[in-house]
């Protein structure tokens, strides 16, 4: 005796009927059909929108309510100010003349205001780590190999 299993195969595109659910959807369909706007009126208003496409952005902002518009503008202003502050904060670091150890990158070309104060009258002065102006000495030249002289005789 051969037993055959009854297989109800449904294809990928086939949906199983459920009269109750379908009936409910049909009622909804009828109600929607009664409420559906006229096709020509929708197309007409769509065309009107096409004509005003250029002013769509302005329309978007002006379509907001008064308080909403104020809030949006305030938010934009706040973002702008925050951006400006961040840029201002970052600027000195970007233009820094100091290396990663904090030492001055360049020897500053500076002459003492009065020779009476500096009897040795050196041609070159440079900035040390402790921010004091020092005259060049052998010791310092060893410590700061990047020193250069004004007259080029380094």
């Amino acid at each position: 005796m051969i037993f055959r299993r009854k297989v109800t195969k449904k294809g990928p595109g086939v949906s199983i009927e459920d009269p109750k659910i379908r009936g409910l959807y049909q009622v909804q369909k009828e109600l929607d059909a009664a409420r559906a706007p006229d096709f020509s009126s929708i197309i007409a208003s769509a065309k009107r929108r096409t004509q005003h496409n250029g002013s769509r952005l302005v329309k978007g902002l002006s379509a907001l309510l008064g308080p909403q518009r104020v809030f949006t503008l305030a938010l934009c202003l706040l973002l702008l100010l925050t951006g400006a502050l961040i840029v201002q904060w970052l600027t000195p670091f970007r233009q820094s003349n100091f290396d990663t150890l904090g030492a001055a990158k360049d020897i500053v070309n500076w002459q003492p205001p009065s020779t009476s104060l500096f009897t040795s009258s050196p041609q070159v002065w440079f900035l040390e780590d402790n921010w004091d102006w020092q005259s060049p000495t052998d010791n310092l030249l060893k410590t700061y190999p990047r020193v250069s002289f004004l007259n080029g005789d380094s």
């Binding site: 990928p12 595109g13 949906s15 659910i21 959807y25 909804q28 369909k29």
Partner: peptide
């Protein structure tokens, strides 16, 4: 469910509309 019962689409077509596989 809307596409199948309301719009009378097959499950395969409903999958097409929603961008998902038939399975």
């Amino acid at each position: 469910l809307h596409l199948v019962f309301y719009q009378d689409l097959t499950i395969q077509e409903a999958g097409h509309v929603l961008g998902i596989s038939t399975g």
